[in-house]
Write a protein that binds this DNA or RNA. Structure first.
Length: 593
RNA sequence: GGGCCAGUAGCUCAGCUGGAUAGAGCACCUCCCUUCUAAGGAGGCGGUCAAAGGUUCGAAUCCUUUCUGGCUCACCA
């Protein structure tokens, strides 16, 4: 039981004794005392005035006296207006530290197998390389998965790979026509980059063909339909659907290039998946489910053969779930995939989809239809919607060449970390391998932290020139503090020992310990909101508190050895909490920097 | 036009279910390394919380309206 709860419960009891009024413990506001005031925890008494029928001050004093009497850990109080500031005994904070020394995963909840959750993220098309937007998506999805695990959930990390459809055929036809047999090996290009190159080529050819047709007197719409290369792509899609061996072979070959390229990028990013779903495997499943839905009357067919779901009762429109020609749309395969996942993981409580906010309507509809089809768990599904990453010039446009390529950016981060590290010259006694490992941890730490510290649902600005800093509220600053704390402990060379309870704490020391004390509730809150930013902000606060203490106090030169031990204890816990918290963000810690 | 989201310091962002004088980082200005790592610390400058109403002991936070920006409402994904 946390001290906050104890205080709230005690306040409730006091209200009952004083005014014979029964109040829910949860409804009592207990908050941290603001820095300008004296005390540790504050009870807001304004809401009780109606019950007490006396002034805020008198109410607060009456409550304070009873709480101090009731709780051993509360040793005093003061009242400012309607705020009852309580002083918590040092022994409470020290005891908390002592209790945490041996906890292997402080702040984490025990695994509860009933709460299995699936988190989907990444899910790129297989015709373009990954870019900055995918980085936000992957870091976000991965981090949320980790945060849920820390909260006791069993988590399945998955992605759906859009390996099928007209967009793939565009790359295929383009490669067929202009590729001259080029492969990743022959060109030295990363597989996804090679396929992306032919996707771009398709677009160029297509545009020039459309332009030529318009020149010949066609209107825009017909020109777009008549362009030979788009028709060739459609033909290829037909062949693919009819399982033409040559087409399938080409498709498999080009996809395998892409997967190899993606695999490399995922490894660099430090993300992974428990299971991969491929659209080419799930879209038929979707069609089956549509059939079932028709039979059960949840869905209906129009005269042209297209299948729809009527959502007008829910305040939405009718939604197409299968084309008139029987081919699948996005919704078809998403229905199929979702249901397949419930079958693959029967204990799944719900699914989380990490997908950009432009698809909010789609997921709203998807969850509704799934529910109507009899998958009531879908009501608990969550669309982890995030805002676009924008550049100073505006949105990323492949046409204008403003797309920030994921591999390039990752490489740049390492280069920046390297150049800063070399200027500082603190890594000189490391091997080359250790150095490059450190550069990577720092550079990627900066990027991940930058992308994760912002509330997911908000759009964010990314200025390649100056955005990713290494000072202030950044990954490297946090890593630096971690390295510092570890260095002190290493120098002290002592095992952690429980501290005596009667030590005096400086304000800086107490602040660090109190912030450490909050870690479990922060993990909970980050999970509740599906927001790694909550965790980032917390780690930053902890790190600032620790640095402030560190700078003002020489830990090892203190003569009182009990005090040295205590400082080492919370330095150790600080390092562990930083390490653990950053791990939940997918960020690794260097041991030196 | 309907729906969803956002608007907080010059810039990038925190601010939880309403609580004390709205906070950080960057940038700018002062200081602090013969010391456990200065990628750091201490301080200063900087705000009509988009605007107007309302709800109440109390509003950046809740409600209404307006303005601005983003996304969305496809037999696209």
């Amino acid at each position: 039981m946390t001290i906050d709860y104890k205080v709230a419960a005690s306040a409730a009891k006091a209200l009952l004794n004083l005014y014979s009024f029964n109040i829910a413990v949860d409804s009592i506001q207990v908050q941290e005392t603001k820095r300008e005031f004296e005390g540790d925890l504050t009870v807001v008494v304004f809401p009780f005035l109606k019950i007490s029928k006396t002034s805020p001050e008198n109410t607060a004093i009456a409550l304070g006296e009873l709480i101090v009497k009731d709780l051993e850990d509360v040793i005093g109080f003061n009242v400012v207006k309607g705020f009852l500031n309580l002083e918590i005994a040092n022994s409470y904070w020290i005891q908390f530290l002592n209790n945490s020394i041996d906890l292997p995963s402080y702040g984490f909840k025990k695994r509860n197998s009933k709460n299995e959750v699936m988190v989907e993220y990444s899910s790129p098309n297989t015709n373009k390389p990954l870019h900055l937007g995918h980085l936000r998506n992957n870091f976000l999805g991965y981090s949320v998965a980790k945060i849920l695990e820390a909260n006791g959930h069993k988590v399945q990390k998955v992605q759906i790979i859009n390996d099928r459809g007209i967009h793939i055929c565009k790359s295929m036809i383009s490669w067929k026509n202009y590729g001259e047999g080029e492969t990743p090996e022959s060109s030295g290009l990363k597989g996804d980059k090679l396929v992306g190159k032919y996707y771009v080529k398709f677009d160029q050819v297509y545009k020039s063909q459309v332009a030529a047709l318009i020149e010949e007197g066609n209107d825009k719409e017909t020109a777009e339909k008549k362009a030979p290369i788009i028709n060739a792509a459609r033909e290829l899609l037909q062949k693919w659907e009819s399982k033409d061996p040559e087409t399938l072979a080409l498709w498999q070959m080009m996809n395998s290039w892409v997967y190899e390229g993606f695999e490399h990028t995922y490894r660099e990013m430090g993300v992974n998946f428990d299971k991969l779903y491929y659209e080419s495997n799930t879209y038929l499943n979707g069609k089956d489910e549509i059939k079932k839905g028709l039979n059960s009357g949840v869905l209906f067919k129009k005269d042209d053969g297209s299948v729809w779901c009527d959502l007008t009762q829910d305040g939405l429109d009718e939604k197409l779930v299968l084309r008139g020609d029987g081919t699948a749309v996005y919704m078809t395969q998403d229905i199929g995939t979702a249901i397949l996942r419930y079958q693959d993981y029967p204990d799944l409580a719900y699914q989380i989809y990490t997908v950009g906010n432009e698809q909010e309507y789609h997921f709203k509809v998807l969850f509704l239809i799934l529910d109507k089809l009899g998958f009531s768990k879908a009501k608990s599904n969550y669309h982890l919607s995030y805002g676009m990453v924008e550049l100073p010039e505006g949105k990323m446009k492949s046409r204008e060449g403003t797309v920030v390529d994921a591999d390039d950016l990752l490489e740049d981060m390492i280069a920046t970390a390297k150049s800063i590290s070399e200027t500082q010259g603190k890594l000189s006694d490391l091997s080359e391998e250790e150095k490059s490992d450190t550069y990577k941890k720092i550079g990627y730490g900066a990027l991940k932290y930058f992308l994760l510290k912002v509330d997911p649902k908000k759009g964010m600005m990314f200025n390649p020139e100056e955005s990713v800093d290494f000072q202030g509220n950044t990954g490297p600053f946090i890593q630096y503090t971690y390295v510092r704390a570890k260095a002190v402990i290493k120098k002290a060379g002592k095992e952690a020992q429980p501290s005596t309870n009667n030590l005096l704490l400086s304000p800086a020391e107490k602040k660090v310990i109190k912030t450490l004390h909050n870690y479990p509730s922060v993990i909970k809150e980050a999970a509740r909101l599906y927001n790694p930013g909550v965790l980032s902000n917390y780690i930053f606060e902890l790190v600032k508190d620790y640095n402030s203490f560190y700078q003002s106090t020489n830990i090892l030169k203190e003569e009182n050895l009990d005090l040295v031990g205590l400082r080492l204890n919370f330095s150790g816990l600080t390092a562990r909490v930083i390490h653990s918290g950053m791990k939940l963000l997918g960020i690794d810690m260097p041991e030196k920097m």
